[in-house]
């Protein structure tokens, strides 16, 4: 296995009770590439994404088999600290979910609980840096004490990205981050993903194929809980090897 793979998943299966939701998926996530997961609704792409930072642990009937490594370390090993894992593998959700607190508090919360900033001046810096990276600083710098929930949907989602960035993660998982946003806000998020690429390994789940084509370098196509095809985005969209992939991206079903 080559060393530039940030995360390596091998033969990962997920069960909800007796139902198998994911069947033996193997995928590598790179530092320099944005990886997109596409596929029809219910194909398991979000479920698989949530195994990468063990968010499925919160569902009591969910069970994961196979191995997932972060920097060569098995994240499902018994010695793994889930809290630290989630700080290293951040997540942005489908619906913007800022805390009902001030903009400043939203961003500062992560660094505070992980002790990443000593003192107020340092915290101010972390907050500013995170908001700048999320492209939100200029819009909110004069009203950091306003409630995060008072922002528009697109701004809320960028606030959530800033919140994820603030704890300095290595991987950022995005679960359909634009599905609740209008086209202008979507464009801003996509632009942001471009800028964040390289600094963080980014995995994005989307049901919008154009979006996958625009933002990602590598694309994985899921169907009915299996990984059908995984490769260069340009390859998948122009020259898919599998018939199913071709049918999906040409809009035959999904």
């Amino acid at each position: 296995m080559t060393t530039n793979h940030k995360m390596i998943a091998r033969d990962v299966s997920v069960f909800y009770g007796d139902k198998k939701a994911i069947d033996s998926v193997s995928i590598d996530v790179d530092m320099e590439n944005v990886t997109a997961f596409i596929g029809p609704s219910g194909c398991g792409k979000s479920t698989f994404l949530r195994t990468l930072n063990r968010m499925n642990d919160t569902i009591s009937i969910a069970r994961v088999e196979g191995t997932i490594e972060l920097d060569g370390e098995d994240i499902y090993a018994s010695g793994m600290d889930v809290v630290q894992l989630r700080a290293r593998v951040g997540m942005v959700f489908q619906k913007p979910n800022p805390f009902p607190k001030s903009i400043y508090e939203n961003v500062a919360y992560g660094p505070r609980i992980h002790g990443l900033a000593a003192g107020k001046p340092e915290m101010d810096q972390v907050v500013e840096k995170s908001l700048r990276r999320a492209g939100l600083w200029d819009e909110v710098k004069d009203r950091l004490q306003d409630s995060g929930t008072a922002l528009s949907g697109g701004q809320q989602q960028r606030l959530c990205i800033a919140r994820a960035i603030a704890v300095d993660p290595e991987v950022i998982l995005m679960d359909e981050p634009c599905s609740a946003l209008d086209p202008i806000a979507t464009a801003k998020i996509e632009e942001l993903i471009h800028e964040l690429r390289g600094r963080y390994a980014i995995v994005i789940v989307t049901h919008n194929m154009q979006q996958a084509a625009r933002v990602s370098q590598r694309t994985a196509f899921f169907h009915l809980g299996t990984l059908v095809e995984y490769g260069e985005t340009s390859e998948i969209f122009t020259n898919p090897r599998q018939e199913k992939t071709k049918d999906y991206i040409t809009g035959r079903y999904g």
């Binding site: 809290v83 700080a87 979910n97 800022p98 009902p100 992980h114 919140r163 994820a164």
Partner: peptide, 27 residues
């Protein structure tokens, strides 16, 4: 309390106790 708030806190690495006392209980 909306589950999205719990997800948000867990997603940036809050421990279950922190989720409860920082977010769920105040709400």
């Amino acid at each position: 309390v909306p589950p999205s708030i719990r997800d948000a806190a867990l997603g940036i690495g809050a421990s279950p106790v922190q989720v409860v006392f920082h977010h769920v209980l105040p709400l």
